[in-house]
């Protein structure tokens, strides 16, 4: 089996890929990166929590003009995963306003970013129509 590495460290691969957040044990605020203290309540203890893999599109844009090296078009979105806001692309859907809509139900999906010289496969994530 090909060795895999996630695009970002908060993506957990395996049989049931999902995102993992650092949750403030005091107020429940969630962060995808490390924090010295909670930006909301200043608490300093965090625990790892799994983020729900299904959600609803709360905002999106269809990017057709981007920096060099960034393939277009793509759909950037904010997905509300049962109270945790997640930033990600909408994938496996035509990138046009007829197929993407506010409030649409989506679920986490992964895709290959290719192999490096060591044969390791990088895996990215997005959200596809549920």
């Amino acid at each position: 089996m090909t060795a895999q590495i996630p695009l970002v460290d908060y993506l957990v691969l395996g049989d049931a890929p999902h995102l993992q957040a650092n949750e403030c044990t005091s107020c429940g605020a969630r962060y995808f990166d490390r924090r010295n203290a909670c930006a909301g309540c200043f608490g300093t203890e965090f625990r790892k929590v799994d983020v729900p893999t299904e959600g609803e599109v709360r905002a999106f844009t269809i990017v057709t003009f981007a920096a060099p090296g960034v393939p277009v078009p793509f759909v950037a979105a904010v997905v509300d995963c049962n109270g945790t806001s997640v930033r990600g692309n909408l994938i496996n859907v035509d990138p046009d306003p007829e197929h993407v809509s506010l409030g649409m139900k989506v679920r986490l999906a992964t895709y290959s970013l290719g192999l490096d010289d060591n044969g390791v496969e990088a895996v990215g994530f997005g959200f596809e129509p549920a």
Partner: peptide, 11 residues
């Protein structure tokens, strides 16, 4: 991140 995230995880 193992590569650029602009365009892969939002914009």
């Amino acid at each position: 991140a193992v590569t650029g995230t602009d365009g892969r995880i939002g914009t």
